[in-house]
Each structure stands twice: as C-alpha cells, then as structure tokens.
Design a protein around this nucleic acid. Structure first.
Lengths: 158, 158
DNA sequence: GTAGGAAGTGGAGTGCGGTCTAGATCAAGC
DNA sequence: GCTTGATCTAGACCGCACTCCACTTCCTAC
C-alpha cells in the first residue's frame, strides 16, 4: 500500500488533518489528491514529499501566497524553472537576513543575561542583596542592567 | 531638550506611533510616560533605551505576554534578578533553537535552488529547453527537482 | 445491522500583534 | 485669529494561518 490516509500524512508531516484540508483548499498542492470510492483522500508518496518541502518553506517564514505561487509553477510543469529559482532565491535571501537578525538579537540577549548573572553572583557572594537598599533610586535609571551602555554595535558580546 | 515626542520616538525605535501607544496600554513600558500640560507624551532617554530592548526581544519572537512579564519585573525594582535571568535564558534558548531550525530550512532551500540552477545551466547550454518535450511525463513525478532524493538528513548540503 | 472512529463538508471562530478611524485637542507659525 | 499638522482617546478592524464546529458519511469490527 503506497497511498496514505489523511491521518497518516498528518502524522508523517506534522501538519494537522485540518491543515492538510486547508492546504488543499488553498491550492498549495501540486496536483489533485486521489480519492477512494467513498470520497476519502489518498495521498501518494510524492504528495508527502511535496508537503515536507512545504513544511520547511513555511517553517522558514514563506507566506502561503508565495507557496501557492510556487505550487502553481510546479503544477504547470517544466519550462518555468527560472521563475521557480527566482522565488527560491528571494526566499533564501529573506531567510539569511532573518538568521542575521536573530543572531544580532541573540547577542543582545546573551549580554543582558550575562549582566544579570554577574549581578546575582556578586549579590550572593556578598551575602545576599538587600532589596530595600537602593529602592529609592529610580529603579529604571542609573547604570543598571536595564539601562545598558549596550554591547558595542559591531561586537558580538556573548 | 532630553525628552522626546511620540513621533520622535517612533522614528528612533522603528515602532509606529500607534504601536507606541499600544505598548503603553499593554503595560509593556517600565514606567509611566510623562505628559505635557496639554497631555502629550514626553519620553525620556531611558524609555527609548527600554523600547530598543523591547524591539529586539520582539524581533526575536518574544511574545508580548513575556515582554509584559519582564517589564513588570523591571518596574518592580531590584530583588527579582533571578527571575529576569530565567526569563531571558529561556528566551535565548528559543532563539537558538529558531536559528538552528532556520539554518536547516536554509540548507534545503539552497539545495533545491542549486538543482534548479543546474537544470537551467544545462538546459541553456544545450540550446534551450523544449517545454513540450516531456510534457506528457507526470510533471510532478520522476527524479526531478520537485521530488527530491533530498539532501542527506544530517549533511548540510549547501 | 449496528456501534464507533476516522474522515467528509462549509463556514465561523481564534490568537496574535498590531493598525486604523473618528472626532477632538494642542501647539507653532503667519 | 487662523491654519496646519502632530497628538490625543476609545474602540473597531485587519491579515495571517490555521482551528474548530456541526453536522453527515464512510468503513471496520463485532
């Protein structure tokens, strides 16, 4: 048996059965899904492969509209490889940019976490922190962990 | 003049004025924003610094609920650094995981793009591709670019 | 033949994170 | 005084990507 029910496909792809029907309605599949006499969907292995690609593209932030466009090109058959490539390239650039962005955020977060960790280490080494000690100073002011002199823009302070 | 109008803050942080008011309503700021006699908001430099942190946390996918929690801790003043640290650490782990995920997607995308690029290079080298040549073959079947034998799961084929 | 679970449909609802509208008010320049 | 443009509030609305609902229908096992 090389064909799968919607439930099996859901399990294999990580999409819900709801999502699978939704994807079909939204024309995100490359071909019509076969049906049994009783009207149940039977997915071929190729459908599952395509869905796995969809999952990765979605996971990396490709909007359904672009995915739909890509599916349409594939459905159309050979001859439009250049456009498919453009689509993928553009998406890859977005992913690269997103990774860059996240790494930048990561370094700020790591830096702030380090400030707190240091703070705590000192506080505890000094026999615990008195929460009332400087409560009168503006709690969000001064050279504290929350008003950073920030890690130098170009240094990845982790 | 060390205080800024909402428009100036919007420009500096990249948030819209709408978003700034929304953040305030949602209690994402560490303190109440000052107002002029006429009721206009006047942001201090510290507010802007905090907003810049918010932007980075949001950009890296921290939900507003967590941001709100973090803001509340900071607002509360010293004494809860351990919890702030836990919050940041947890978020950093999510960011790391997300970066990993994106890199995995990226490698699939790059691989697929390479298949198309190669396809095109050959096609054009061979004097252009005849779109009707194999149109009768199932366009989504066979060892084509769209039914990948996929890059080996553990190799980062880019 | 009947019970129970998986799957079918169309359409409404959800959660998130803003974004926009309407109509009033404020403030700077002429 | 008047215009212009930024800002104010409360609250409605939006886009995205599902997710759920309220049925009905199918199929397998007993």
């Amino acid at each position: 048996m090389t064909e799968l029910s919607i439930g099996e496909v859901a399990e294999r792809t990580g999409l819900s059965v709801h999502a699978l029907r939704f994807y079909e309605r939204e024309e995100l599949l490359v071909g019509p899904v076969r049906r049994t006499a009783g009207g149940r969907r039977r997915y071929a292995v190729l459908d599952v492969r395509w869905l796995e690609i969809c999952v990765k593209l979605r996971e990396s932030g490709m909007p359904l509209a672009d995915l739909r466009r890509f599916a349409a090109l594939v459905r159309q058959g050979p001859g439009n490889e250049a456009e498919r490539l453009r689509l993928l390239d553009a998406h890859q650039r977005r992913v690269d940019e997103r990774i860059r962005e996240l790494e930048e955020c990561r370094s700020l977060i790591a830096w702030k976490a380090a400030v707190y960790a240091d703070h705590l280490a000192r506080g505890e080494a000094a026999g615990l922190w008195d929460p009332t000690a400087d409560a009168s100073a503006d709690s969000s002011a001064g050279p504290s962990a929350d008003s950073p002199a920030a890690p130098a823009q170009s240094s990845s302070a982790s």
